[in-house]
Write a protein that binds this DNA or RNA. Structure first.
Lengths: 136, 136
DNA sequence: CCTTGACCTTACCATGATGGGAACCTTTAT
DNA sequence: ATAAAGGTTCCCATCATGGTAAGGTCAAGG
């Protein structure tokens, strides 16, 4: 299997496959005589693992850890659980931050006439002009 | 006021102030004879505006738009409202994505013994082994 | 056999927003 | 006078990904 086929079979672009190889996330595959990378089912399986981990928002570094744990048959599931739990916590922090932004913005948008007049509570808030705007 | 003072007065690092200037987000300030940037209250006000917009998750480009609208005394508030509403929608999309990740991960973590045995539903899922794992 | 087109190779550049550091100059305080 | 603090520019790094250019390879068809 060439890199293009491995890409469509795994959902990881050829570009990213080469990149993952270059940073050591995945092992360099065999090459043909003409220097083409050759992939088999095992490699595609690894790529799909990586793809899924990335889709779940794990960084490449976390993915490397998980990949190591996956390939270590004697690992304790507690280690994996810890990585996943940390990741959940990080995602939740991120979600809270975004929700804070959305709440503030929704309030501002709600207070904004959205008409053709230039008065705008949103800009007033951004400018630090604490008028009718709740709180700050 | 030198750049350091403007930085602490606005909450934008000196580094970022120079960067914002280099990309044209803010206007180059006057310089002293010895080439030091000089800032006044107006500039700090602009920097605070930028800081607040960035804190609310607006990209630098969106911030530039808002800044333009802020400085255009004849703008319609509808324009600002549109920018803000689009941004809210983008944030909400992002939040949904993150929540999807968290839900999946929480389910996996819940199913994982987290003990010293090597069986791990989380890794099974990442590997695409659809065992006891709900759905996927 | 030779061309064409699809695919592969490496290498470099770009993104967005920020931080870090080097090398050098200025100002201020001791 | 000297040292410390802070300014200046310029370059590099991050993180994950995409793009592009210049060139090699392979399969199909005239």
């Amino acid at each position: 299997m060439n890199i293009g086929q491995a890409a469509s079979a795994s959902g990881v672009s050829a570009k990213m496959i080469r990149y993952y190889e270059s940073i050591g996330l995945i092992r360099p595959p065999d090459r043909t005589e003409s220097n083409y990378r050759v992939y088999g089912e095992d490699e595609v399986h690894v790529l799909r693992f990586v793809k899924r981990a990335r889709t779940l928002g794990f960084s490449v570094e976390e993915t490397a850890t998980l990949l190591g744990l996956w390939q270590d048959k004697s690992r304790a599931s507690a280690e994996v659980k810890a990585v996943a739990s940390n990741h959940i916590a990080a995602l939740e922090t991120k979600i809270s931050e975004l929700e804070g932004m959305v709440n503030t913005l929704r309030h501002l948008v709600h207070c904004c006439g959205g008409d053709s007049r230039p008065d705008c509570p949103i800009l007033d808030d951004l400018a630090g002009f604490s008028g009718a705007t709740k709180g700050r």
